[in-house]
């Protein structure tokens, strides 16, 4: 009887130790993880979209030809978010812009920091602190030749316990001089959520 008790105790102890290995903890995760947590837009979706757009744009034959001799100047427009979610779409275009810049094929103008630029130039011109010879003059910046625009939409369907969410991100590169769309591509993501019998 004592032997049995000892054995039972041992099983319980090993079980408790093993389970405690999986108890709640906090730790660093992989920033590139593709584990879907919910049907909502997530970090992996953002990375997939950004990579797909950049890969498509820099390998599109007319773009390869264009960027073989020059690094075109591009401006990034705000994404039209037509999904039912609050998404920081600037974060998507920031990722796209960084990747394009690092590819060494494109250059960008950043309209979001214009106010700070004007303030800095004003201070250089008017404060009297900066040597006139190397103070940056107004009206010397390069204008963008291309505009990068994007649309983000979502179709959500629900039947019983299953919710199906379809995301579509469309991006286009518009030639500002001619108005022609030089490149466009889309990335689709589908997420299917099935509610379990127990729990939320």
């Amino acid at each position: 009887m004592i032997k049995e008790m000892k054995l039972l105790f041992a099983v319980v102890a090993v079980g408790a130790l093993t389970l405690s290995g999986c108890a709640s903890t906090i730790q660093y995760g992989d920033a590139g993880s593709a584990k879907p947590i919910s049907k909502d837009f997530g970090s992996s979706d953002l990375q997939q979209i950004a990579e797909a757009m950049v890969d498509s744009m820099i390998t599109f034959p007319p773009m390869v030809e264009l960027t073989s001799t020059q690094r075109p100047v591009v401006s990034v427009d705000k994404v039209k978010n037509k999904t039912m979610q609050h998404i920081d779409t600037e974060s998507i275009t920031d990722s796209v812009r960084s990747r394009l810049l690092r590819s060494g094929k494109f250059r960008f103008v950043d309209r979001t920091t214009d106010a700070q630029t004007v303030e800095e130039l004003k201070s250089q011109q008017e404060s009297g602190l900066v040597d006139k010879k190397n103070a940056v003059q107004f009206g010397q910046q390069l204008g963008a030749e291309f505009l990068l625009t994007a649309n983000f939409s979502e179709i959500r369907q629900q039947a019983g316990n299953t919710t199906d969410v379809y995301y579509k991100f469309t991006m286009s590169l518009k030639n500002l001089k001619t108005g022609i769309l030089e490149w466009s591509d889309e990335k689709e993501i589908r997420k299917v959520f099935t509610r379990g019998t127990f729990g939320g």
């Binding site: 992989d30 920033a31 590139g32 593709a34 992996s44 990375q47 997939q48």
Partner: peptide, 9 residues
């Protein structure tokens, strides 16, 4: 770009 690659399904 060490460590920048993300997993794709």
């Amino acid at each position: 770009n060490s460590g920048a690659g993300s997993w794709k399904p």
